[in-house]
């Protein structure tokens, strides 16, 4: 029984990372109705930035903070330079740009820091806690994710800027009419999504090790989480991320074995699309013809 509860808690720990990445996806999807296929590679790049800072002697939490700020700037820059000119472009163009971005960031990571797999430090150690039920690294990851999600929630719920951003995601035309700078809000949203992704990247890197392709599987779980919770609902995405983490760990341990974990995520995506495409907490969209 202890083993089972351990799997659940380990699932919550990785689920928190999927939840963060799913939240980043949903933040961009809400504002632009596009799925950022480069979200995983952006997080990888951030993790490499943190690695470079730590190698040059910056302590862990210093590197953590600088990376989050740099990632925010980079995300906003990408929106401003690459995506703003394509605001009214067809879907294929935008998805193509996301894929191009994915390729470029992936190649940059390999080019600057080479392709060898590197260990990434965790500030929480790996002591077993509560009689082996959970490790300190898992508990630390859960804590960091919860604090970040709480901060994001508070930002959107209690600040004027957060309200303005929600307004833009909901209805850009009306927002512009009441004097909100829509472009700035979009860049801000990309920045925030990149920063959230950076935290997710730094939290998962000690588990999967640093490598230019480390996020491709993680992004798949984040897709599954975002879809399961509802692509248009941030709470849903977070819930879905945690659920997928638990499904992945418990299913991997008792059901399909570790070799088919990614296929499990694919199955979750297929089932959600077949049974409830709007997700658990999303709204079904009806459009007037």
């Amino acid at each position: 029984m202890l083993g089972f509860w351990h799997q659940i808690l380990a699932g919550v720990a990785t689920g928190g990372i999927y939840a963060s990445l799913a939240l980043a996806l949903v933040m961009i999807h809400q504002a632009t109705h596009h799925i950022n296929f480069a979200q995983g590679e952006m997080a990888t790049f951030s993790a490499y930035l943190a690695y470079a800072l730590m190698v040059s002697g910056v302590p862990y939490w210093g590197a953590f903070g600088i990376t989050v700020v740099l990632s925010f700037a980079l995300g906003a820059l990408i929106e401003r330079v690459l995506l703003r000119p394509l605001a009214h472009a067809p879907d294929l163009t935008l998805i193509g740009v996301f894929i191009g971005l994915l390729l470029i960031l992936n190649a940059l990571c390999g080019w600057i820091w080479d392709f060898t797999i590197k260990p990434f430090p965790s500030p929480f150690g790996s002591r077993p806690l509560l009689g082996g039920l959970v490790s300190s690294a898992e508990l630390g990851t859960i804590a960091v994710t919860f604090v970040m999600l709480l901060l994001i929630w508070a930002f959107f719920r209690f600040t004027k800027l957060g309200l303005a951003m929600r307004a833009v995601a909901h209805n850009p035309e009306s927002s512009r009419l009441v004097g909100i700078r829509v472009g700035a809000m979009l860049a801000l949203g990309w920045g925030l999504a990149a920063a959230v992704g950076a935290v997710a990247g730094m939290m998962i890197a000690p588990v999967v090790f640093l490598d230019p392709n480390m996020m491709s599987g993680i992004l798949l779980y984040a897709f599954a989480g975002a879809l399961l919770g509802g692509l248009d609902n941030p709470f849903g995405a977070v819930l879905g991320g945690f659920l997928v983490g638990v499904i992945e760990n418990v299913g991997g341990a008792y059901l399909v074995g570790t070799e088919l974990k990614l296929s499990l995520a694919l199955a979750v995506i297929a089932f959600v699309l077949m049974l409830k495409p709007s997700g658990l907490l999303g709204r079904a969209v009806a459009s007037r013809v």
Binding site: A89, I99, G100, L103, I104, A107, F115
Partner: peptide, 15 residues
């Protein structure tokens, strides 16, 4: 790393 970067840059330039 070049093939990935070349693909990415050419793809975006093309679009």
């Amino acid at each position: 790393a070049a093939p990935g970067a070349v693909y990415g840059v050419i793809l975006i330039a093309c679009l």
